[in-house]
């Protein structure tokens, strides 16, 4: 259950960024989470909701999930993957890398 500590990091980062932006008031934060980031998205959504509600900051939040994509280092083709290391469906190579789906990013904030 590391979603709560990750949610806290998100809120701290967003508040800091709003402060850096001329002390504006944070009204919404937007997060991008890859499906293979190792984070339970429902758990994160729940945790963010609890923190923002209990802090009485009146801040909304949105979570965008990102589907995983891999690239084969041998035949250089992209393909949809289900885990970090997926064999290439075109040439069978195991030498592949995840290019999308591992994100855990504060995408943007809305300030007033």
């Amino acid at each position: 259950m590391h979603e709560l500590s990750i949610a806290l990091s998100i809120v701290n980062l967003a508040v800091q960024e709003a402060k850096n932006n001329g002390n504006s008031k944070l009204s919404e934060l937007e997060v991008e989470v890859g499906e293979l980031a190792g984070v339970d998205i429902n758990g994160l959504d729940f945790s963010l909701g609890i923190i923002l509600k209990s802090s009485r900051m009146n801040v909304g939040h949105k979570i965008h999930t990102i589907s995983p994509l891999s690239r084969c280092n041998i035949c250089k083709r992209d393909f949809k993957s289900t885990r970090k290391y997926t064999s290439c469906p075109f040439c069978g190579s195991k030498d592949t890398r995840l290019t999308k789906g591992n994100e855990l990013r504060l995408k943007s904030i809305i300030v007033e």
Partner: peptide
């Protein structure tokens, strides 16, 4: 003039710290 909310792109890794 803060009535207009503005979107600020952050694009920062949450585990960056």
């Amino acid at each position: 003039h803060h009535e207009q909310p503005s979107v600020i792109e952050i694009e920062k890794d949450i585990l960056s710290h």
